[in-house]
Amino acid sequence: MPENDDQSILDLIGRPESRNRGFELLVHTYQERIYWLIRRIVFRHEDTDDVVQNVFLQVWLHLDSFRRDSRLFTWIYRIAVNEAIRWQKKNRLHHWISFSSMERELGNILVSDPGYNGTEVEFKLQKALLHLPFKQRLVFQMKYMESLKYEEMSAILGTSVGALKASYHHAVKKIERFLANH
Protein backbone atom coordinates (compact mmCIF):
# COMPACT_ATOMS: atom_id res chain seq x y z
CA MET A 1 0.00 0.00 0.00
CA PRO A 2 1.48 3.36 -1.00
CA GLU A 3 2.28 5.76 1.77
CA ASN A 4 0.04 8.49 0.36
CA ASP A 5 -2.91 6.13 0.80
CA ASP A 6 -1.85 5.70 4.40
CA GLN A 7 -1.81 9.45 4.57
CA SER A 8 -5.38 9.77 3.34
CA ILE A 9 -6.53 7.15 5.84
CA LEU A 10 -4.77 8.99 8.65
CA ASP A 11 -6.20 12.31 7.47
CA LEU A 12 -9.69 10.88 7.58
CA ILE A 13 -9.09 9.43 11.02
CA GLY A 14 -7.65 12.74 12.20
CA ARG A 15 -10.92 14.58 11.58
CA PRO A 16 -13.68 13.76 14.10
CA GLU A 17 -16.41 13.83 11.46
CA SER A 18 -14.63 11.25 9.27
CA ARG A 19 -12.86 9.20 11.96
CA ASN A 20 -15.16 6.20 11.65
CA ARG A 21 -14.99 6.22 7.88
CA GLY A 22 -11.21 6.42 8.03
CA PHE A 23 -11.02 3.51 10.43
CA GLU A 24 -13.33 1.42 8.31
CA LEU A 25 -11.08 2.12 5.35
CA LEU A 26 -8.05 1.14 7.42
CA VAL A 27 -9.62 -2.20 8.35
CA HIS A 28 -10.69 -2.75 4.78
CA THR A 29 -7.18 -2.02 3.51
CA TYR A 30 -5.22 -4.24 5.90
CA GLN A 31 -7.65 -6.92 7.04
CA GLU A 32 -6.62 -9.59 4.56
CA ARG A 33 -2.89 -9.33 5.16
CA ILE A 34 -3.38 -9.29 8.90
CA TYR A 35 -5.85 -12.15 8.71
CA TRP A 36 -3.49 -14.44 6.78
CA LEU A 37 -0.53 -13.58 8.97
CA ILE A 38 -2.50 -14.68 12.01
CA ARG A 39 -4.28 -17.61 10.38
CA ARG A 40 -0.98 -19.26 9.58
CA ILE A 41 -0.04 -19.04 13.22
CA VAL A 42 -3.26 -20.02 14.96
CA PHE A 43 -4.72 -22.17 12.14
CA ARG A 44 -8.40 -22.17 13.07
CA HIS A 45 -10.62 -19.52 11.46
CA GLU A 46 -12.58 -18.81 14.64
CA ASP A 47 -9.40 -18.21 16.64
CA THR A 48 -7.99 -16.08 13.84
CA ASP A 49 -11.16 -14.02 13.80
CA ASP A 50 -10.82 -13.37 17.53
CA VAL A 51 -7.20 -12.31 17.20
CA VAL A 52 -7.84 -10.14 14.14
CA GLN A 53 -10.58 -8.28 15.94
CA ASN A 54 -8.33 -7.77 18.93
CA VAL A 55 -5.67 -6.37 16.62
CA PHE A 56 -8.01 -3.77 15.15
CA LEU A 57 -9.40 -2.99 18.57
CA GLN A 58 -5.84 -2.25 19.73
CA VAL A 59 -5.28 -0.15 16.63
CA TRP A 60 -8.43 1.86 17.37
CA LEU A 61 -7.49 2.36 21.01
CA HIS A 62 -3.97 3.51 20.23
CA LEU A 63 -4.46 5.45 17.03
CA ASP A 64 -3.67 8.70 18.79
CA SER A 65 -0.32 7.36 19.96
CA PHE A 66 0.76 6.38 16.44
CA ARG A 67 3.65 8.75 15.85
CA ARG A 68 3.80 8.35 12.08
CA ASP A 69 7.54 7.75 12.10
CA SER A 70 6.90 4.34 10.59
CA ARG A 71 4.46 3.19 7.93
CA LEU A 72 0.94 2.50 9.08
CA PHE A 73 1.25 -1.05 7.79
CA THR A 74 4.41 -1.65 9.83
CA TRP A 75 2.72 -0.38 12.98
CA ILE A 76 -0.40 -2.52 12.50
CA TYR A 77 1.73 -5.54 11.65
CA ARG A 78 3.68 -5.14 14.87
CA ILE A 79 0.45 -5.08 16.83
CA ALA A 80 -0.69 -8.18 14.95
CA VAL A 81 2.54 -10.03 15.73
CA ASN A 82 2.22 -9.09 19.41
CA GLU A 83 -1.37 -10.28 19.52
CA ALA A 84 -0.41 -13.53 17.80
CA ILE A 85 2.36 -14.08 20.34
CA ARG A 86 -0.09 -13.37 23.16
CA TRP A 87 -2.45 -15.94 21.72
CA GLN A 88 0.38 -18.46 21.43
CA LYS A 89 1.30 -18.03 25.07
CA LYS A 90 -2.28 -18.17 26.20
CA ASN A 91 -2.89 -21.38 24.34
CA ARG A 92 0.35 -23.01 25.44
CA LEU A 93 1.39 -23.68 21.90
CA HIS A 94 4.71 -21.97 22.18
CA HIS A 95 7.73 -23.85 20.94
CA TRP A 96 9.01 -24.92 24.32
CA ILE A 97 6.27 -27.52 24.50
CA SER A 98 7.67 -30.75 23.15
CA PHE A 99 7.56 -30.92 19.40
CA SER A 100 5.55 -34.10 19.37
CA SER A 101 2.71 -32.77 21.51
CA MET A 102 2.60 -29.42 19.75
CA GLU A 103 2.69 -31.03 16.35
CA ARG A 104 -0.02 -33.44 17.37
CA GLU A 105 -2.27 -30.71 18.71
CA LEU A 106 -1.94 -28.33 15.78
CA GLY A 107 -1.95 -31.23 13.36
CA ASN A 108 -5.26 -32.29 14.89
CA ILE A 109 -6.60 -28.79 14.38
CA LEU A 110 -5.69 -28.94 10.72
CA VAL A 111 -7.23 -32.37 10.25
CA SER A 112 -10.46 -31.54 12.04
CA ASP A 113 -10.87 -27.96 10.83
CA PRO A 114 -13.46 -27.71 8.05
CA GLY A 115 -11.68 -24.50 7.10
CA TYR A 116 -8.58 -26.40 6.06
CA ASN A 117 -8.50 -28.22 2.76
CA GLY A 118 -4.82 -28.14 1.89
CA THR A 119 -3.14 -30.68 -0.30
CA GLU A 120 -0.83 -33.30 1.15
CA VAL A 121 2.18 -31.16 0.30
CA GLU A 122 0.67 -28.09 1.94
CA PHE A 123 -0.13 -30.13 5.01
CA LYS A 124 3.42 -31.43 5.12
CA LEU A 125 4.79 -27.93 4.88
CA GLN A 126 2.57 -26.82 7.75
CA LYS A 127 3.86 -29.72 9.83
CA ALA A 128 7.42 -28.81 8.96
CA LEU A 129 6.75 -25.24 10.07
CA LEU A 130 5.57 -26.52 13.43
CA HIS A 131 9.07 -27.83 14.05
CA LEU A 132 10.53 -24.35 13.93
CA PRO A 133 10.84 -22.08 16.95
CA PHE A 134 8.05 -19.54 16.92
CA LYS A 135 10.09 -16.58 15.77
CA GLN A 136 11.83 -18.55 13.05
CA ARG A 137 8.45 -19.71 11.85
CA LEU A 138 7.22 -16.15 11.80
CA VAL A 139 10.25 -15.04 9.80
CA PHE A 140 9.75 -17.86 7.31
CA GLN A 141 6.08 -17.04 6.86
CA MET A 142 6.70 -13.36 6.39
CA LYS A 143 9.42 -13.96 3.83
CA TYR A 144 8.28 -17.03 1.96
CA MET A 145 4.52 -16.69 2.08
CA GLU A 146 4.05 -12.96 2.24
CA SER A 147 7.17 -11.94 0.32
CA LEU A 148 7.98 -9.11 2.69
CA LYS A 149 11.32 -7.41 2.32
CA TYR A 150 13.91 -7.94 5.02
CA GLU A 151 13.86 -4.22 5.75
CA GLU A 152 10.11 -4.32 6.35
CA MET A 153 10.44 -7.41 8.52
CA SER A 154 13.22 -5.72 10.45
CA ALA A 155 10.98 -2.75 11.21
CA ILE A 156 8.13 -5.01 12.26
CA LEU A 157 10.07 -7.48 14.38
CA GLY A 158 12.76 -5.15 15.66
CA THR A 159 15.45 -7.58 14.52
CA SER A 160 18.47 -6.75 12.40
CA VAL A 161 18.38 -7.59 8.70
CA GLY A 162 21.42 -9.84 9.14
CA ALA A 163 19.77 -11.87 11.88
CA LEU A 164 16.60 -12.18 9.80
CA LYS A 165 18.52 -13.46 6.79
CA ALA A 166 20.28 -16.01 8.91
CA SER A 167 17.04 -16.97 10.62
CA TYR A 168 15.34 -17.50 7.27
CA HIS A 169 18.26 -19.47 5.94
CA HIS A 170 18.22 -21.84 8.90
CA ALA A 171 14.44 -22.16 8.73
CA VAL A 172 14.70 -23.27 5.11
CA LYS A 173 17.40 -25.79 5.97
CA LYS A 174 15.32 -27.25 8.78
CA ILE A 175 12.25 -27.50 6.58
CA GLU A 176 14.27 -29.25 3.90
CA ARG A 177 15.56 -31.73 6.45
CA PHE A 178 12.08 -32.31 7.82
CA LEU A 179 10.63 -32.89 4.36
CA ALA A 180 13.40 -35.28 3.46
CA ASN A 181 12.89 -37.36 6.61
CA HIS A 182 9.10 -37.47 6.85
Binding site: R39, V121, E122
Partner: peptide, 28 residues
Protein backbone atom coordinates in the same frame (compact mmCIF):
# COMPACT_ATOMS: atom_id res chain seq x y z
CA UNK B 1 5.93 -22.23 -8.24
CA UNK B 2 5.58 -21.42 -4.64
CA UNK B 3 2.82 -22.97 -2.66
CA UNK B 4 -0.13 -20.58 -2.63
CA UNK B 5 0.31 -18.16 0.20
CA UNK B 6 -2.87 -19.30 1.88
CA UNK B 7 -1.58 -22.87 2.01
CA UNK B 8 -4.87 -24.69 2.04
CA UNK B 9 -6.73 -22.54 4.52
CA UNK B 10 -10.10 -21.24 3.53
CA UNK B 11 -12.52 -18.75 4.99
CA UNK B 12 -16.28 -18.42 5.04
CA UNK B 13 -17.73 -16.62 2.04
CA UNK B 14 -18.17 -12.92 2.50
CA UNK B 15 -16.02 -12.74 5.61
CA UNK B 16 -13.90 -9.78 4.51
CA UNK B 17 -16.90 -7.90 3.19
CA UNK B 18 -18.51 -7.92 6.63
CA UNK B 19 -15.51 -7.48 8.88
CA UNK B 20 -14.82 -3.70 8.67
CA UNK B 21 -18.41 -2.71 9.38
CA UNK B 22 -18.70 -5.35 12.10
CA UNK B 23 -15.61 -4.17 13.93
CA UNK B 24 -16.53 -0.52 13.59
CA UNK B 25 -20.04 -1.20 14.81
CA UNK B 26 -18.76 -2.92 17.95
CA UNK B 27 -16.18 -0.29 18.67
CA UNK B 28 -18.48 2.67 18.25
Amino acid sequence: ERIASKSGFRIPDGYFEHLPAYILDHIT
